[in-house]
C-alpha cells in the first residue's frame, strides 16, 4: 500500500506534526453538531485507512504515537477552554490507538475502541453547549461555581470528564489497559510513557473540573438541566461502561 495511505492515516489517527491539521480545523467549526460528527468520524477514518493499508505497522510508530499522546496530554494540563481540552484529549487518545494497531494480534475491535474514546468527548461537547448558553463561554474560571449554580449539569460534566480520561470502568480505561499490556513485552518504555500520559490526563481533568465546579455562585440565576436529562445521561454512561466491560473486558 502506498505511503500516501500511511500519511493519511497519520493525519486521522493523529501523529505530531500531522495532528496540527485536526487542531486547526476543530476551532473553526462553530456548530456543535458538526463538531460531534468530526469527533465521531475522524478516528474512524484513520482506522479505516490503517485497515485498508493492510500492512504491518512498524514498531517505531508506537514510539511516535506515545510521544504525540504525551505531548497533547501534557499540553491539556493548562487548558481552560473546554473545546480546546476536548481537542487535545481526543488527539492524545486517538494517537494511542496506534499501539493497538502495532501490537495487538486482532485489530477487529479497533473501531469500537475509537468509538468508545469519541463518545465521552461528544457528551462533553453537548455540556459545553449548555455552559456557553448559561455563561457565555465554556471556559474554566468564567463558568465557575457550577456545583452550586447547576448541580445536575455539574454532575454530568464531572462524570463526562472522568469518562473521557479513562477512569474505570469507562471503556477508555480498557483501551488504555490493552495498549499497556500489549506494549509491555515488546516495548516496556512505551508502556511506561502511556501510564505517564494517563497521569497527564488525570491532572488536566482535575484542573479543569476545579475551574468549573468550585467557586461562588454567580448572582445571575442559572437554569439546570432537567432530572430526565440527567437520568438519561446516567443510563448512557452505564451503557457505555457495560459496553466496555463486555467488549474489552477480556484481556489476552
Amino acid at each position: 500500500m502506498s505511503d500516501l495511505t500511511w500519511l493519511a492515516a497519520a493525519l486521522f489517527l493523529p501523529l505530531f506534526p500531522f495532528s496540527m491539521l485536526l487542531n486547526q480545523v476543530m476551532p473553526r467549526i462553530r456548530r456543535p453538531w458538526q463538531r460531534i460528527v468530526l469527533l465521531l468520524a475522524w478516528p474512524q477514518v484513520g482506522i479505516a485507512l490503517v485497515t485498508v493499508a493492510n500492512g504491518t505497522v512498524p514498531t517505531w510508530v508506537a514510539a511516535w504515537a506515545v510521544a504525540t499522546a504525551a505531548l497533547y496530554g501534557f499540553r491539556a494540563i493548562v487548558v481552560r477552554d473546554l473545546g480546546l481540552w476536548i481537542q487535545f484529549i481526543g488527539t492524545s487518545t486517538w494517537a494511542l490507538l496506534w499501539l493497538l494497531a502495532v501490537f495487538a494480534s486482532d485489530t477487529g475491535l479497533l473501531p469500537m475502541h475509537a468509538l468508545a474514546s469519541s463518545l465521552p468527548l461528544v457528551i462533553l461537547t453537548l455540556v459545553g453547549v449548555g455552559l456557553e448558553r448559561r455563561f457565555g463561554a465554556a471556559y474554566a474560571g468564567v463558568s465557575r461555581g457550577l456545583a452550586q449554580a447547576s448541580p445536575r449539569l455539574a454532575a454530568v460534566f464531572v462524570v463526562s470528564v472522568l469518562v473521557a480520561v479513562a477512569t474505570p470502568p469507562a471503556p477508555g480505561f480498557f483501551t488504555l489497559l490493552a495498549a499497556i499490556i500489549y506494549a509491555m513485552p515488546a516495548a516496556p518504555v512505551v508502556a511506561g510513557v502511556v501510564t505517564v500520559t494517563w497521569l497527564f490526563w488525570a491532572w488536566s481533568a482535575a484542573r479543569l473540573v476545579q475551574g468549573f465546579i468550585v467557586g461562588t455562585v454567580e448572582t445571575r440565576p442559572q437554569s439546570d438541566i432537567g432530572p430526565a436529562q440527567a437520568w438519561l445521561f446516567g443510563l448512557f454512561v452505564a451503557a457505555l461502561s457495560a459496553q466496555g466491560l463486555l467488549l474489552f473486558g477480556k484481556m489476552p
Binding site: R80, D81, G83, L84, E132, F135, G136, A137, Y139, G141, V142, S143
Partner: peptide
C-alpha cells in the same frame, strides 16, 4: 469580569 466569548482569544 472577563468577557466570556473572548476568553480563549485573550489567553
Amino acid at each position: 469580569d472577563l468577557l466570556p466569548a473572548l476568553a480563549q482569544r485573550v489567553e
